[in-house]
Design a protein around this nucleic acid. Structure first.
Length: 301
DNA sequence: CACTTGACCTGTCCGC
DNA sequence: TGCGGACAGGTCAAGT
């Protein structure tokens, strides 16, 4: 799925598009994708105005004028694609840089119909847009929740600090990861309670940059190297955002475009290829069921 | 508690 | 070309 850089890329895109737009309707045919009661949707989503877009870990948060917010988790194959209704790029054809052939399509789970702010002000007739939540594997979800209750959600309370936030310290990271003393360091790193937003791609990349073998137990990784790891997690995530995220198969941004981070990846999906640092061959193994890529020469500790 | 595995879904790819 | 199995970026619940 979309990890932190992919979700952040979508957040940045939607922040340019959605604020001040009015939600006219929401339609969905896979209840698990949007489990709220229709009554709640009618009362607190339909007719509301979008105020701002936040992100916590891999969750997008769309704040509404009604005091409710939409929480969206894309899990493995979720997409959030915005289209203005008269946009001729969509429908019959599509731009070369888009992965989306048509909208809606067989993976579309929720459609949000919007009234655009600028047009609504002047003419009011044609200012429409749609936001499509697509999710091939149906693991993702959208939930409508009172804004004040977001921080009280159990999974939110348990999340580790934002790696790119101002307040994360080396000591916070070390304390949290040390609680997973007997875990493989790779598994601890993708645990959202340790640090929020790191997933399989950026974990493998951060571990390569730090010279740490993914199957090392946390208790056997030195404090010095854990500090180095936190620094590399930040660098890797920043580059991920700069490159618009990683598109392996599915991921697109809010305009349906791919991200280019994988062109810069050192180990992820590079098994059988030479390591750019030492020339040894990168290998792929399974660690607790997760595909894991690393360089056996650079990552011994 | 900490840790691992299987389940949630659908599509694709690979070997026979 | 068909068929079965493994695999895919993420979490949960349930098991040890």
């Amino acid at each position: 799925m979309p990890e932190l850089p992919e979700v952040e890329t979508i957040r940045l895109g939607l922040s340019e598009l959605l604020p001040k737009q009015k939600v006219l309707a929401a339609t969905y045919d896979w209840p698990k994708s949007f489990p709220n009661e229709p009554k709640t949707v009618e009362r607190f989503l339909v007719g509301s105005t979008i105020e701002s877009i936040d992100r916590r870990a891999k969750v997008l948060i769309i704040h509404l004028s009604t005091g409710y917010s939409l929480l969206i988790h894309l899990k493995m194959t979720g997409q959030l694609v915005y289209v203005e209704s008269e946009d001729k790029r969509f429908g019959a054809g599509h731009p070369n840089d888009s992965l989306i052939a048509s909208l809606p399509n067989s993976t579309t789970r929720v459609i949000f119909e919007l009234e655009r702010w600028s047009d609504a002000k002047s003419s009011g007739a044609n200012g429409r847009a749609k936001l499509f939540f697509n999710d091939l594997r149906k693991f993702g979800w959208v939930k409508l929740i009172p804004t004040v209750e977001i921080d009280q959600l159990e999974f939110m309370k348990k999340l580790g600090p934002e790696p790119l936030g101002d307040f994360v310290t080396e000591q916070m990271f070390i304390d949290r990861i040390r609680r997973r003393a007997n875990s493989y360091v790779k598994i601890a790193l993708i645990n959202q309670e340790v640090i929020a937003g790191v997933g399989n791609i950026y974990a493998d990349e951060s571990l390569w940059a730090s010279g740490i073998k993914p199957t090392k137990r946390v208790k056997n990784v030195s404090e010095k190297r854990l500090k180095l790891l936190l620094g590399n997690v930040k660098e890797v995530l920043k580059l991920g955002i700069e490159k618009g995220g990683s598109t392996d198969k599915n991921y697109v941004n809010s305009k349906g475009q791919k991200g280019s981070y994988l062109e810069f990846a050192k180990v992820f999906r590079r098994e059988g290829l030479a390591c750019s640092a030492c020339g040894d061959i990168i290998i792929k193994i399974r660690v607790n069921g997760r595909g894991t890529h690393y360089c056996p020469t650079c990552q011994k500790r």
